[in-house]
């Protein structure tokens, strides 16, 4: 049953790869030095997690591809990242809202993965959980602070929430890969995590004086690779350029 597990691992690794890349784009450009440093820490954690997830994916696949090969030599349709993490940074508010929505899902998902029947997956989840718990603490504090800050910051945060909300639903869609993982006790059913996510998000949005959008319409196509955003292709032209331009070089 190698194929679904490979698929499952690239989903985890591509999420952290793509989001880590996005967050790293802030380096040197954040609103204040302390935030610049904190964002870099988040990006560094995510890049580290990518190395573990994609490394294991390559191992499970058994075709000699390592984490770097998977990161730098696959095209858009082979990526399995959620549409949410592909979204551009926008302003700092949009970046932090995206981070919060992802962290709220990610932390809970990883917590469940710590009980995975596959000890390698459980071990990566355990290491990542420590990092992601802190990401969530920081991103929810920032969402609350800016939502309940000045009039301008409130308006911007509401706009960010409205802009990103259609990408929340995809995190909780279960498909046949998830079903295979559930059957083997490897991973939880994403749909089962929605309740806890909603409670957490509602609490934070209330404290932030933000209004949760009524419409739960969800864009899909990232985690299956069926239809990514246009943004991902542009990101890859930058991320993969050196590897693609000099395929015989080692760095």
């Amino acid at each position: 049953m190698t194929q679904p597990q490979f698929e499952f691992l690239t989903r985890l690794g591509d999420n952290t790869l793509v989001l880590g890349h996005r967050v790293s784009e802030w380096c040197g450009h954040a609103p204040v030095l302390e935030e610049d440093i904190a964002l870099a820490n988040t990006a560094l954690d995510l890049i580290g997690q990518t190395q573990l997830w994609l490394g294991l994916a390559g191992e499970v696949e058994g075709k000699g591809r390592d984490a770097d090969t998977l990161a730098f030599h696959r095209d858009v349709w082979d990526f399995r990242s959620l549409l949410l993490v592909e979204q551009p940074n926008g302003d700092f508010g949009q970046t932090m809202m995206r981070q919060f929505l992802f962290d709220a899902w990610h932390s809970n998902y990883l917590a469940q993965l710590m009980d995975s029947s596959d000890s390698r997956i459980a071990a990566i989840a355990e290491k990542s959980t420590k990092e992601v718990t802190y990401h969530l603490e920081r991103s929810s504090d920032t969402v609350i602070g800016l939502g309940d800050g000045t009039e301008e910051s409130h308006v911007r945060m509401q706009k960010a929430l409205d802009r990103l909300w259609p990408f929340v639903g995809e995190m909780f869609v279960s498909d046949e890969v998830d079903a295979a993982m559930v059957a083997e006790g490897i991973a939880p059913d994403p749909a089962s995590l929605r309740g806890e996510f909603d409670t957490l998000v509602n609490n934070v949005l209330t404290a932030a004086t933000l209004t949760r959008p009524q419409d739960d319409f969800a864009h899909k196509g990232g985690k299956t690779g069926g239809r990514h955003t246009e943004h991902l292709g542009h990101m890859l032209t930058q991320m993969q350029w050196l590897q693609r331009a000099y395929p015989d070089a080692s760095w």
């Binding site: 935030e35 800016l146 800050g149 000045t150 911007r156």
Partner: peptide, 11 residues
């Protein structure tokens, strides 16, 4: 970044 610095301070 001004609105961010001001927003968090106001909060």
């Amino acid at each position: 970044g001004r609105w961010v610095r001001e927003g968090l301070l106001a909060h």
